[in-house]
Each structure stands twice: as C-alpha cells, then as structure tokens.
Design a protein around this nucleic acid. Sequence first.
DNA 1: GCCTTCCATAAGCATTATTGATGGTTGCAA
DNA 2: TTGCAACCATCAATAATGCTTATGGAAGGC
Lengths: 317, 317
Amino acid sequence: MHLTLKQLRIFEAVAEHRNYTQAAKSLFLTQPAVSMQIRQLEEEAGMALFERSGKEVRLTDAGLELLHHARLIHQQLEEAQQAMAEMRGLKRGRLRLTMASTANYFAPRLLAGFCRRHPGVRISLDVANRDGLIQALENNTSDIVIMGKPPERLPVRAEIFLDNPLVVIAPPGHPLAGRRRIPLSELARHPFIVRERGSGTRAAVERFLARHDVERPTGMEMNSSEAIKQAVQAGLGLGVVSLHTLEMELALQRLVVLDVEDFPIMRHWRMVYRRDKRFSAVAQAFHDFVRDEAGALLSRAADDAPAPPSPPAAPAG
Amino acid sequence: MHLTLKQLRIFEAVAEHRNYTQAAKSLFLTQPAVSMQIRQLEEEAGMALFERSGKEVRLTDAGLELLHHARLIHQQLEEAQQAMAEMRGLKRGRLRLTMASTANYFAPRLLAGFCRRHPGVRISLDVANRDGLIQALENNTSDIVIMGKPPERLPVRAEIFLDNPLVVIAPPGHPLAGRRRIPLSELARHPFIVRERGSGTRAAVERFLARHDVERPTGMEMNSSEAIKQAVQAGLGLGVVSLHTLEMELALQRLVVLDVEDFPIMRHWRMVYRRDKRFSAVAQAFHDFVRDEAGALLSRAADDAPAPPSPPAAPAG
DNA sequence: GCCTTCCATAAGCATTATTGATGGTTGCAA
DNA sequence: TTGCAACCATCAATAATGCTTATGGAAGGC
C-alpha cells in the first residue's frame, strides 16, 4: 500500500473545490499534477473517488468515505506538528536532572528560575550521592548531572558554572576565631568533623591536605553539611563546608569562617553529561540557562525571590 | 512543512527496533535510506528524535512524543484503508435506485436477492413515474434507474435485462375469452381501460396501435396496473398490462389473457444510467447482479425464496 | 456552430529517494 | 593493545517520482 499525504492533501482540495483546476491553483500546482495524484489515489483505493462529467466533479460514495478519513488523518498530523512545535518552543517537555546532595542549597533557586521561565516543563529531580550521580550518567537516566568533580572513567563533558569555595568553620567562641592567616598545621591540633567516606567534599579536603603535607586531624564523620554545621555549632570541632551554605549561620553569627592559609579550597559546580548526549530542547534550554544565569541568580540574596510574602506558589500540574 | 508517511513509518520502525539497520531490513530498505529519512524528519521536527551512541539508539523526549502521534496517524490510515477495502469488497456502501412504479412486481425479489448477497449495503429506492425517472437521471440522484423505454434526450446508457410482454386482459366470462388470434380491429369495439397520460405503458400501447392503424378504443383511465386489473375483473372493459403482473390472477382464474393478433407487445425492462456515470463498487455489483441473474431470479416462482419456513435471517451487523 | 472551460494524456525535466561503497566510532575478545 | 564486528554517517551514482508544458477531447454556454 503506497498512500501518501500528498495524495490525501490534493484529494481534500479537489473534494472541497469540486474542480481540479481550482484545487490545483489553491495548492500552487498545475492541473495535470492534480489529475495524476488523484488517479493514483483512485488506483490505490481500487475504485473511483470522483465522478467526472463535463459539468462537474462529484464525490462518489467511496470518495465521501475517504474524505472523512483524510480529514481525520490531516487533523492527527496537525496535532503531531503542534506537539513538535510546542516542544521546540519549550512549552512542554521533560527534564531529568540528578544533583549531588550538597547542591541542595542552590538547586531550589535554580529550578525555580527555570520553571518560571518555562512553565509546562516537567522536571524530575534526583538527589544522589556520588555513586548515584555516576550511575545516572552511566545509565543515561539523567539529561544533566549537577556535581563537583566529574568522573574520569566515563566519556562525559563537564562545564563549570559556579564556584564552590570550601571554608573552615568554627563556633564563634573558638580559639582560632578572629585569628588571621592561620597556618594549616594549626588545624591538625583541633578535632575535625568530616563527611563520610565516598563524599566528594571529603575527598576534596583529603586531597587538599595531602597536597600540603598535613595529616588530617582526627574527628567524627557526618553524612551531610547540615549535620556538620550543627556539630560545629555544638562545639564538637572544626569543619569544612561550602561557603555558600553558610549564609544564614553567618548572618546570625552562629558560625564563623576561619582565615586559614591556602583556604578556601576552590572547587566548582559543574553540569556533567554524556559526551554522546543529544540534548532535548528542554535540556538544551536548561543547560544554557544555567551556564548564562546561574551566577547572577545565585549570587542574589535569597530574599530576592521570596521577598514579597505572597502565597507560596501556583498549584503544580 | 513536508512530513511524509514514509518518514513516519520508518521512524516507527527505528523506534521499535532501536536499531537503524534492523529497521531498514524490516522495511526492505538499506540502512542509509533509513538514516536519511530520519535525518529529514529530525530537521522537520526541529530537534533530535533519537540519541545515538555507539551502544544504542534511544528515543528522545521529542521522539517519544512523536512516536505517539505517528502511531495514531498510522492507525487512522489503516482505518481509511480498511474502509476502502470494505467498500471494494462490498461490505458497505449505498446504492441509490429509482424504479418505474410498474417495476413493483419484480423489484422486491430483485432487491432481496441482492441484499442477501451483500448485507451491509444500504439501498435507497425511489419509485417514480416516468417524469420522476427522467429527473433522477438528470439530477444524478440515482445510480441506476429501472425503467422501460430510456429517455432519448439524455446521454444515458440502457441495458435490457428482462422482457416485459404487455398482454390484453379480460374477465373470464368475456365474449373474446377463449377466441384465438383475435384481430386488432376487434379490440376497438370494446371499452378499454388505459393508464393515465404520461405513463410509459400507455405510450407504448398507443404507439403500438398507431403503428397498426387501429384507433384506440374508448374507455377509462386508471393510474396503476393494479387498478386496471381490478377494473377489468369488475367487467368495466379490457386492459393492457404486463404479463408478469398477472401471476396470481391467472392462477386463480380471475382474469384471462386474450390471444390478440400481434400481441403481446414486447417491451423490456432496462437498467438506465448516465453515460458519464462512474459506478461505485456497490452500483457495479448491482448492475452485474441484475444483468447476470435477474432473468433466473425472476422466472423462479415467488414461493422459491420463502419456501423453507426457517428462521428469517442471521442478525444483521 | 464557435468558443470557453475543464479534465486526460504524453514527453521532458527537476527533484527526491535509494543504493552501494566507504569511513569513523564503539564495544568486545583475544 | 590489537583486531574484529556491529553500527551509523556520508557520498556519488542511479532509479523513481512528481511536476510542468503542450496538446487533445468532451461538454456547456452563447
């Protein structure tokens, strides 16, 4: 069976004009082109679709039936094109993201900004530890992964979009608080709270200390930045966390940043994705959004967004 | 926009196989052909539909969306082809017939025979006088017209499918009953009941008498064969009707056929249709059915059909 | 009867699709 | 690593299709 859309389109035009020549004009074709396409269509249908007499062109019963179907097909086709156009125009689509758990502190503002610009885009967000991030890349279950240090084994691309300075924190009354240019060696004398094994932050800290020939101070392990901050506030020791997570604690003077030599450890947030990835329109848009505007968006104070105490949000779809 | 069904079909195949080469095989194409069609489709969609990596071919979000639409379109298409096939196969369709009122006596058997063979075909039957028949041809409101003498002014085709002998009838006790080879001139002495002006039968009788130089006997006018038969039975005069309408009256000896010289007037039943007519499948089937089987069907006694008193019919769809 | 309108047909041309050959990439196994 | 196999992209040549111009025939209007 060798039906073509062209045939159906021409057929519809003829059915509507009841005149080959007019139909041809309306399609910017010549009349013979119409004649031939109709003839082919009739051959495929196996019967006449029009009755031609000198006077007029009329649909046969079969033609009437086919016209009905042709219109339905036409309609379906337009819906398909509409859907494509909408996805191109980012009115719709799905975005699969995976983020390091430590990205928590800026992720909401990032996503909110993107969603505000593209309502209708559904985002599914996974928060995972480093293993989870790597799996997401391996299994292609995520369009973009937000993480720190990209995995070296996988064929991925990584783009820095935000600094992530790690600083040493202490409770306000700590002996080192207020001291300037604290040498690294000093740190080793104090108990130290670190992230669990496998954490990117911990690995970064250990690499950093090793590079500077400093033994890691003894201390507890905690499995989140929040827990570390709480522990430090409670006086259990020093800690290393991302500066950006300290906004409120610093403002309320619950914690202080120590001025340690060679700190902050400058790490970066990256968008990481498979080298063979072909971005969907939505993914591309998110990528560009983050690349171009993450810095500005995230450096603005958090009070910028929820400042007017209006109702929390529009109902989500 | 330049979508083609070919593109959609190939797209579906690739989506299902997740492999260009396999998809190509399943469509009896080569792999490059598939590559190119998909590329075109992607250009028209304005975005990637597949993610290709060395390992596998995966649908993008847009691809998934398009696949959905492609399947709907495909489905519509198959319904259209199904409809065409059914009309070709005469499972469905409409047949518009117009018949001379005097065809009443055989029409039911004819239609019943056709309907039994093609259930699902709807027949709309108009019974009209000669003027009505001609109008039906002029306005193309009928596929086929069953009539006697075809109109000469219209560009029509006419095909004889049945004899229609007109005979002179009388009540059994009539003085002419039983006489052999009654000369035409004898008829003129008896009152004569004829069809109304405009009737084909009357015209035929008048042409016949004129050709034989016989003046038409005086008498009444009646507007149907049935009325004439009744009047003749009542002794109001002689009449001329189609032999085929007399089956029961002859069997019951309510009427007799006179053996008049040069009678019967041999007329014919014809299928008449516009010369430019392009038959629908149903119309063609009816035409062939009548041409090939009307004789056999109508010469069989009427008791042939309803003879076995079995359940009427299978439930219609 | 002539002229116009309209569809069918045919030959030539332009466009498009398909093929076969080839190259690059990836994954797998020796 | 190297070699191999599977797979998709690309290219040039060819096959197929569709379109156009030119022309013919039929029907209707004047």
